[in-house]
């Protein structure tokens, strides 16, 4: 039996809109176990990003309970939430979000600096992560000099460089060609198998879906289907 990492119970997320509210997620009950490789699929606006943000403690739910690695998300102070993210969670954003004045190397190094790692260890880990994503030769480039796909790979390297327990990836392959997508997915799969890192994706991409072991379908803020795929 794999250990339970995330537990979501009767969770609802409302966004205030004008005078009223918009319900982006409704009555979600979900559990994620350590070592999962799970995709959240659904049409645009179905609430995928919202769900990932709440799991990653960047946002809080409106109703219900969300527990991540023993932390109740709603009760978390901003400092504790920052600590949880720094130590245990890696984010990959739909829009890369690289820091523009830093080089590729420095971008990937950033989470390690926050962890207070020595510069020697940092260098080793960053070079390793860049190798995973096939960007060793771009270490000194700045984001503005990279293609969209390369930026996405830097963002992925940055999320996995600290070997977090949980990686939350919002459309990680949206800007990658087939070859790169497969390469990245294999890399993540290997991390998942070797280190037991839990991956939760949001995706439209059929290529991603073929790597998944679990597929959760959202529709209008509700869990429509939750199924084991590719033999689990």
């Amino acid at each position: 039996m794999k250990k339970e990492l995330i537990k979501i119970e009767k969770m609802t997320k409302n966004y205030p809109i004008g005078g009223g509210k918009f319900t982006a997620l409704r009555d979600i009950d979900l559990e994620f176990k350590k070592g999962e490789f799970t995709g959240i699929v659904g049409p645009s606006g179905s609430g995928k990003t919202t769900l990932l943000n709440i799991i990653g403690s960047l946002d809080t739910q409106s109703e219900g309970d969300v527990n991540v690695m023993g932390n109740s998300i709603r009760k978390l102070s901003s400092k504790k939430a920052a600590k949880l993210r720094s130590q245990h969670i890696g984010f990959i954003f739909q829009t890369y979000n690289l820091l523009p004045v830093y080089t590729v190397f420095e971008n990937v190094e950033f989470p390690l600096i926050l962890l207070g790692m020595s510069s020697e260890k940092r260098k080793k880990a960053v070079l390793e992560a860049l190798e995973w994503v096939g960007l060793s030769d771009k270490a000194k480039s700045r984001p503005a000099q990279l293609s969209g796909g390369e930026c996405q790979r830097v963002a992925i390297a940055r999320a996995i460089v600290k070997k977090p327990d949980l990686v939350l990836a919002d459309e990680p392959t949206a800007n990658l060609d087939a070859e790169n997508s497969h390469h990245i997915l294999k890399t993540m799969k290997k991390l998942n198998e070797d280190l037991g890192t839990t991956f939760i994706f949001s995706t439209h991409d059929a290529k991603v879906i073929q790597y998944l072991r679990r597929k959760i379908s959202l529709l209008d803020g509700k869990v429509d289907k939750d199924e084991i795929v590719n033999g689990g």
Binding site: S78, K79, A82, K83, S86, I89, N97
Partner: peptide, 10 residues
């Protein structure tokens, strides 16, 4: 926002 997501405190 990115720095916050990576766990930098306010």
């Amino acid at each position: 926002g990115t720095m916050m997501a990576m766990g930098m405190t306010r």
